[in-house]
């Protein structure tokens, strides 16, 4: 399942998509995020399974445009640490 966390407003669409089928629950993405946006939780959208997956923390979901901004400079943008850390490639950013 692809869980999209984020929002859309007048300035654009800001979603972090986590593919829970690809996510292996390793948790490598959690410490590399300088803003501590991610956490490991039981899959909320499949309540009957016990799988642990990465998710965007509840309190960050409505402001990720700003929280993620330091990793996304207008020029000279490097690859995002969360995406680099994810071996199965489960994390995607929409902007």
């Amino acid at each position: 399942m692809i869980a999209n966390y984020g929002y859309k407003d007048g300035s654009g669409e800001y979603f972090i998509g986590i593919d829970t089928d690809k996510c292996n629950g390793c948790g490598d993405c959690v410490p590399v995020c300088p803003a501590k946006v991610l956490e490991m939780v039981a899959d909320q959208y499949d309540p009957l399974s016990d799988k642990i997956v990465a998710a965007v923390r509840e309190e960050e979901r409505k402001k990720i445009k700003y929280t993620c901004a330091p990793c996304k400079p207008a020029s000279g943008r490097a690859l995002l640490p969360c995406m680099l850390a994810c071996a199965p490639g489960a994390i995607a950013h929409s902007w």
């Binding site: 399942m1 692809i2 869980a3 999209n4 929002y7 859309k8 407003d9 979603f15 959208y45 499949d46 409505k62």
Partner: peptide, 12 residues
């Protein structure tokens, strides 16, 4: 009935 993808807009 299992969710495969979702999008929510609860900001406004």
């Amino acid at each position: 009935g299992k969710v495969t993808n979702f999008l929510m807009n609860d900001k406004c």
